[in-house]
Design a protein around this nucleic acid. Structure first.
Lengths: 219, 219
DNA sequence: CCAGGTACCTAACATACGTTAGGCAGGCGC
DNA sequence: GCGCCTGCCTAACGTATGTTAGGTACCTGG
């Protein structure tokens, strides 16, 4: 058998064994990296023994590949939903802010699934990486298209290195996983504001920073 | 014995055994992370056997702690030198550019030593991290002071989250290690330009981006 | 010429890892 | 009531790791 699908736990009943393994695997993968995430520790924190993992997954690689997949699909869904909801918003700054916020929410609030992509992807075995790469590439392409559209609309300046600009923006968002604490005094919305403002007008005094409208329900 | 200092190899003669271990350790640490950097592989690529490492270092932790220390002191020295050289430059943008460039040069050109801080520091054992943390904190403080000075000079807008702004700038520089190839068509100077421009004026069309003067020898 | 330090090597140790084979209890269909 | 599938456990396998003890060749100072 190759895998063993289980419906994501409905709210109310406790997570199945497979789901617990994924949750614990995501947490450990994000916190300790690939090599230091051992099946014995995953099993222990999920309330079972190491050998039992092989009833649900073929291997460590397959379990953690699934974790990375879920993390990528989650942030992709969040992206799509934010784009859809803000599609008819005139102000391009507000649109960008909505999508940045969606990305950050997935990164910090969807368990540790999406966070594993920032912290553990690079050092995962090649087989694992190549199993998730298409999803990652597709997601990065979405961001590239979004930025290209902003250039086409005249909101962003044209650049001859659009890829570099996209990577800079993604780096700004993803790197925050190493230092931002969503339970602290600054909210995810504050973080989104600081990133969008920096990306939009920079940090200089000369450009007057526009008030970033946080309330996405305003007319 | 606790360590076994050796003078850094003078150009011309071949590196000592200890130096080779540090070089190889830095390369493997930057490329594969802490857990996947094994002493046997370090030894093999340095042309000796695993047990022999213990003539030069007390443990794996001590070897890799030393690698991280060297990486941090290298980028700190580069920072200080750039600040010193550009101290009497009037234009704050040019000063910032010089320091950003120095940081990126250390990151991409001083072997893989400095790069280990971006890729491997977070997942190193706590003892290793705490052994290098003072150096890291001191370096980050230098950046904070530099940005604070730019605010005091009126070049940067004031912010009530100066720490966040500093982290954003450092993230922009450090994250490039994951995708920038200094041997490609874009140079390190191009990368410095793109980062400084984004940090300075953002990516919008409204602010006209000033020509970043790359030639630091201009009057 | 020879004592001692330098710079390695060999061989093994305890431990931890991913993985596998086989077993066992409980629930469900027939 | 019996068979079967689900979901887990036990015990072990081979392999790899950090580390250590003891040895060996070479160079240098006296």
């Amino acid at each position: 058998m190759t895998s063993r699908p289980t419906a994501p736990t409905s709210p109310g009943d406790e997570p199945s064994g497979r789901q617990r393994l994924l949750d614990v695997g995501a947490a450990l993968l994000a916190e300790h990296g690939y090599a230091d995430t051992t099946l014995r520790q995953v099993a222990r924190e999920a309330g079972m023994k190491a050998g039992s993992i092989y009833y649900h997954f073929d291997s460590k690689d397959q379990l953690l590949t699934e974790v990375l997949r879920l993390g990528m699909t989650a942030v992709t869904d969040a992206f799509d939903e934010a784009v859809g909801h803000s599609r008819d918003t005139a102000d391009p700054l507000v649109r960008l802010h909505a999508v940045v916020q969606a990305h950050l929410r997935a990164l910090f609030e969807f368990g540790p699934y999406t966070a594993t992509h920032v912290t553990a992807f690079h050092y995962a075995p090649k087989d694992v990486r190549s199993g998730v790469l298409p999803l990652r590439d597709a997601y990065e392409a979405k961001w590239q298209n979004l930025l290209d559209d902003l250039v086409a609309d005249g909101a962003l300046a044209a650049t001859n290195t659009p890829r570099v600009r996209r990577l800079h923006l993604l780096d700004l968002m993803n790197s925050a996983i190493h230092w931002f604490d969503p339970t602290g005094t600054e909210t995810i919305d504050d973080l989104a504001n600081s990133i969008v403002e920096l990306f939009w007008v920079g940090a200089t005094n000369s450009a007057h920073s526009p008030a970033l409208n946080t309330d996405r329900n305003s007319p």
